[in-house]
Simulated assay, not measured.
Amino acid sequence: MGQLEGKTALVTGGALGIGLAVATRFAREGARVILADRNGEGAAAAAAGIGENARAVTMDISNEDAVAAAFAELEAAGWAPDVVVANAGVQLFGQDAPAADLDLDVWRRTIDINLTGTFLTVKHALRSMVPRGGGSIILTGSPTAVNGEGKDFTAYSASKAGMHGLGRTVAAAYADKGIRVNTVQPAYTETPLVAAISEDPESRAAIISRIPIGRAGTPDDVAGIMVYLASDDGAFATGATFQVDGGMTSL
């Protein structure tokens, strides 16, 4: 019997990268999984690859009507989630920049998706979970939220710092409603999101040199701690940040 037997989990950004790895692992642990992504075709293909215990939903997290409609659709179908992983996000390589050079439109787009989109996901997860007695919400954070790792990515770093703060605030506000909220902080993890780094040997070597374990993270490195936080084993964990970063922020 898997650790997530009997649970239903929604993962945003589920079509690829960390989101897909987490959804796949959740399914192996016995959960029904919902892969939510603005790329509906990609999410559907990923869900088909996982199997009959997976389904896809098209969801642009920056659009509240789309988020509300997705949660309503799932509830009507008997797939209201017990676990929500707010993982979707963007990092606009070649556009994000140090503050004095940052275009306002790039700032707004990043904040709209990464921070406002996470807020909307959390908001509607809460509205679904509270009447049913609780649930687990997991946010995908970043070392850029806590140190100078993202000095050339002002908008991304600020969006992730806001996400970390949001997680703590919501955890405190809803603990008495049976809602647990935690943030998982991966290090540099090689996914399509960071292809600009992974395809540049010099940039890749530079960032890996700052990870004491000595290698890049993989999406599967993140999945295990999320299983714990989604499961009943994590019943006393809330308002915390779990660093899965190879020691990157321990220096």
Rank of each mutant, 00 (worst) to 15 (best):
A44S: 13
D82W: 09
E75Y: 00
K151W: 13
A9E: 13
S142I: 01
E29K: 12
V22K: 04
A235S: 15
A21T: 06
G40T: 09
A76S: 15
N53I: 00
R55V: 11
G89V: 09
D103H: 14
A205Q: 09
S159W: 13
M248T: 08
Q243Y: 15
D232E: 14
F93V: 00
R215W: 09
G214N: 10
G19T: 01
D60C: 12
L126V: 13
I111Y: 01
I225K: 01
T191Y: 03
A206R: 14
G247M: 14
D245K: 06
G40I: 07
F26C: 00
Q185F: 12
D103T: 04
Q95Y: 05
R132E: 06
A97V: 08
V106K: 08
K151F: 15
T116P: 05
L251V: 12
I50W: 02
E149T: 09
A230G: 15
A216R: 00
K123S: 04
F242T: 12
F242D: 03
G117V: 10
V194S: 07
G6Q: 11
P81T: 12
E202R: 14
Q95S: 10
I137F: 13
G78F: 03
A125E: 02
V57N: 03
A27W: 10
S198Y: 03
V57P: 00
N114V: 12
A155T: 02
E149Y: 08
A70R: 03
W107I: 11
V85K: 01
P81S: 08
D101G: 01
V106A: 11
Y156L: 07
Q3K: 14
N182H: 11
Q243F: 14
P81N: 12
H124I: 05
G17L: 05
N63K: 13
G17H: 01
A187V: 10
A72D: 15
R132Q: 04
S142F: 01
A77I: 05
K151G: 13
T241P: 03
V22R: 04
L229G: 07
Q243W: 05
S142H: 03
